[in-house]
């Protein structure tokens, strides 16, 4: 069960896209790498399965478990940053994707800390998340990586 603690942070952005495309952008590395500070993701995105957020150098940044998964509307992830010393307590990140009109979605991201964390750590989130969400919006609305097919690698010279 997901704890019903009040979230510490609630961010909302309206995106001219479909819930399905928004879900895809959050769950596929090809797209996350374009708005999530170059990070990639790994998971089957099914309830109970592990998930990993990797830094551009391949190192694990965040690890956790998929606590709820209802594509393309709800994704709840536990969030552990193991490499920080001291390791901060686990937090929860939820994405709620709601259609609000013809090809417009309201994406709500919440961060909940069941155990209080330092102001410094919260500040990091307050800086990062708006950039991530704004980047996601512009990626989906300008269509890069979606409307434009991914370029295939150059062909081998035939000679």
């Amino acid at each position: 069960m997901v704890k019903t603690t009040q979230p510490d942070t609630v961010y909302v952005t309206y995106i001219a896209t479909t819930p399905k495309r928004c879900w895809t952008a959050l769950t596929q590395s090809k797209l996350t790498s374009q708005f999530f500070f170059g990070r990639t993701v790994e998971s089957s995105w099914q309830k109970g399965s592990p998930w990993i957020l990797r830094k551009p150098d391949g190192g694990a940044d965040v690890r956790g478990v998929v606590l709820e998964s209802d594509p393309p509307n709800t994704l709840v992830l536990s969030w552990n940053i193991d490499w920080l010393d001291p390791k901060p307590p686990e937090c929860l990140v939820t994405y709620l994707i709601e259609p609000v009109g013809n090809e417009i979605v309201r994406l709500t991201m919440t961060e909940t800390h069941p155990t209080p964390v330092s102001e410094h750590l919260l500040e990091g989130g307050r800086r990062g998340w708006p950039m991530i969400l704004s980047g996601l919006k512009s990626l989906l609305e300008t269509g890069q990586g979606l409307a434009i097919p991914t370029p295939s690698p150059p062909e081998e010279p035939t000679k």
Binding site: P7, T9, V10, Y11, V12, T13, P130, S134, G135, S138
Partner: peptide, 13 residues
């Protein structure tokens, strides 16, 4: 009530 700075970031972008 929660502060949502995302629209401000979108303007900056």
């Amino acid at each position: 009530h929660y502060l949502n700075p995302v629209p401000i970031t979108e303007i900056a972008d």
